[in-house]
Nucleic acid binder design. Structure first.
Length: 622
RNA sequence: CGGGGCAUAGCGCAGCCUGGUAGCGCAUCUGCUUUGGGAGCAGAGGGUCGCAGGUUCGAAUCCUGCUGCCCCGACCA
């Protein structure tokens, strides 16, 4: 038996054992620890939700391989359990969060006029061959065969299936526009799954696809989706930003990403302090408002031994870093006569590889030249390169074009030119935006300056155009009775990723701090020593029932643990509000209320606690 | 795919160098005590030391191969 199979078997064996144990435990508990008496006749549907029913299982320590805080907290809180690389079980507590996220997404998608459907997770290869993606998609696409050796894939996305639906069902322009959506499990065989459900292989996504007879109609639905997405993330109480994105290989015009802001986010976002402008760092335009100063220095050739880096140049020759130039050599596109092309950015700036890749003179995909290729073409190695007497085409960043009296390699090993000036010493040829923006750069829309935030991409809307509809011949008849290819938009939200992103954004030393709209419960009742007091049991049950009747999503911690354990657990799993009920409090007719982020608890009269909670909820829910 | 690391009880780890009865903390179970911020004491259960070979009287430990996982990089809606 292969080792993997045995591991799986032994894992299952363990699960069976655990289930038996917990069954026995629950069984015994229900015998020995009779539950609070709840009036059910008036309220049969809203059953009692107790921590014991949730099978809550928290830990103090997190597994060593959990890197990011959301992954650690989700494991510690018992929201998820890992089955295998990039594959997670959503435990009862975590599933409640997912369901709340899905509910908000559904409501807003429905309100925006989209229609929910559900497509198969497994898709036949024929469709992907038709769109051309069977060959394009790399190992990310999980391919499999059925018993007849027919090829299938587990869908990483559903453009092909939905386009097939559209071409079968849509006949006339009169039926357009339509916007279909689904909430589905997707699979992408990520090179390196990590960060828990943030970048897992299997994940739940809301994806929507719209079909149109005109660009105006596509733009309208795109705008509607922009609004719907803004509503969705606002309703979840997440701090987010919509940013312009590079549309990448998929093409199309409009492309906006929605990012949940968090310091730990994987993506950098540039935003203007003076306007609504925001863009993915890959896309954010670096403008140069300075004009070139007149030359003050003569160009001189200087011996610069052991000076292979910008930093060494700055240190050894007292040259300000903003008067140095980095010369990067990459493969040229067919549009150039040469094999190689040089990219120039200022010494303290970073090359933006997406921008470079998009330049017509640069080979796609971007490929840096090897040292040998550089030596063959230029006669000097990296570290001594510069624009003067360079035998290959040059593209200068906009900022570089505005520099004067600067230093750069002389294309001779261990020599640099200082005091270089454009046009006088070397022709300034092609100029383009090649670099990443830096904090403090002027905003490209002219108002304010740019700063950088980090974000987690949770949504992406873009206008696909006719890529799939043309490839798959999805047409309708127009007013003139002629076939027209429909244009498409597509709109995704990473449902499982939203849960993780919310935690990245909202946590403290004690655990998760759920925004109320997506918290697994809104409020938890923590009875102190309930087992010993029938009166307390009764009161806790009554309070639960009252809150439930008032429409509050409430959890009762019936575990009869020590108070400290219950407090710590409820803070770890991030319930926004906590009511402590005890004999001591009941004696004075009060319970104790504490919001998750409150500094201290406050006493509230028992008779008024339901209204108090509702008021607090209204406040927190906006 | 390149580089590095790890694999010992459910979780977190020690033991390995220098081969000789497999340990610690948390968790679990039992009993007693305790009961408003992750309780105390006493006891118990739980391990083919990732897998397969090899060396050896003897392997968690040394050697070889394999597998899985993690990190960095490259890649990626």
């Amino acid at each position: 038996m292969p080792a993997g199979e045995r591991a799986i078997q032994s894992r299952f064996r363990h699960i069976v054992v655990a289930t038996e144990l917990s069954y026995n435990k629950r069984h015994t508990a229900s015998l020995t620890n009779s539950l609070p008496c709840i009036p059910t006749s008036s309220n049969r549907k809203s059953h009692l939700m107790r921590t014991s029913q949730l099978q809550l299982s928290t830990t103090k320590e997190s597994p060593a391989d959990a890197e990011v805080i959301s992954h650690q907290l989700m494991l510690r809180a018992g929201m998820i359990r890992r089955l295998s690389a990039g594959l997670y079980t959503w435990m009862p507590l975590g599933l409640r969060v997912l369901r709340k996220i899905e509910k908000i997404v559904r409501e807003e998608m429905d309100a925006a006029g989209a229609a929910e459907l559900l497509m198969p997770a497994v898709q036949p290869a024929e469709l992907w061959q038709e769109s051309g993606r069977w060959g394009q998609f790399g190992p990310e696409l999980l391919r499999l065969q059925d018993r007849h050796n027919r090829d299938y894939c587990v869908g990483p996305t559903h453009e092909e299936v939905i386009t097939d639906i559209a071409r079968r069902d849509l006949r006339s322009y009169k039926q357009l526009p339509v916007n279909y959506y689904q909430i589905q499990t997707k699979f992408r065989d990520e090179v390196r799954p990590r960060f828990g459900v943030m970048r897992s292989r299997e994940f739940i996504m809301k994806d929507a696809y719209s079909f149109h007879a005109s660009p105006e109609s596509l733009q309208q639905t795109f705008d509607d989706m922009y609004q719907a997405y803004s509503n969705i993330f606002s309703r979840m109480h997440l701090k987010f930003r919509a940013v312009e994105a590079d549309s990448g290989a998929i093409g199309g015009s409009g492309s906006m990403e929605f990012h949940v802001l968090a310091d730990s986010g994987e993506d950098a976002i540039a935003y203007s302090t003076g306007s609504d402008y925001a863009a993915n760092l890959e896309k954010a335009e670096a403008v140069c408002t300075e004009s070139r100063a007149e030359p003050l220095q003569e160009m001189t050739l200087v011996d610069t031994p052991d000076t292979k880096t910008i930093q060494a140049l700055v240190d050894n020759f007292d040259l300000p870093i903003d008067r140095t130039i980095k010369t990067l050599i990459c493969h040229a596109s067919e549009a150039c006569d040469a094999e190689l092309v040089a990219l120039l950015v200022r010494g303290d700036h970073q090359l933006n590889e997406v921008k470079a890749n998009n330049h017509p003179m640069v080979a796609t995909p971007l490929c840096f030249a090897s040292e040998q290729e550089i030596r063959n073409a230029i006669g000097a190695g990296p570290g001594s390169l510069g624009p003067v007497k360079l035998p290959i085409p040059v593209i200068a960043d906009r900022t570089v074009a505005a520099m004067s009296d600067f230093g750069a390699g002389a294309n001779v090993d261990d020599k640099h030119y200082f005091g270089i000036n454009w046009n006088r010493d070397v022709e300034l040829g092609e100029v383009a935006d090649l670099r990443n923006i830096e904090p403090g750069d002027p905003s490209p829309d002219g108002s304010g300056e740019l700063q950088i935030l980090r974000g987690i991409e949770v949504g992406h809307i873009f206008q696909l155009g006719d890529k799939y509809s043309t490839a798959m011949n999805a047409t309708v008849l127009d007013e003139n009775g002629r076939d027209v290819v429909m244009s498409m938009g597509c709109y995704g939200i990473g449902v499982t990723r939203v849960a993780a992103a919310a935690i990245e954004q909202n946590n403290d030393d004690n655990g998760i701090i759920w925004p109320v709209p997506i918290a697994p419960f809104e409020v938890v009742i923590v009875p102190i020593n309930m087992r010993r007091s029938d009166a307390l049991k009764e009161a806790a049950g009554q309070l639960y029932s009252d809150l439930k009747s008032a429409g509050v999503d409430v959890l009762l911690d019936d575990r009869d643990s020590r108070p400290g354990v219950m407090f710590a657990d409820m803070e770890l799993i991030g319930i926004p509000m906590r009511i402590v009920i005890s004999d001591k409090g009941l004696a004075k007719g009060a319970v104790e209320f504490k919001g998750r982020t409150d500094d201290a608890a406050t006493d509230v009269e028992l008779g008024g606690i339901v209204d108090f909670v509702r008021a607090r909820l209204a406040e927190l829910s906006g």
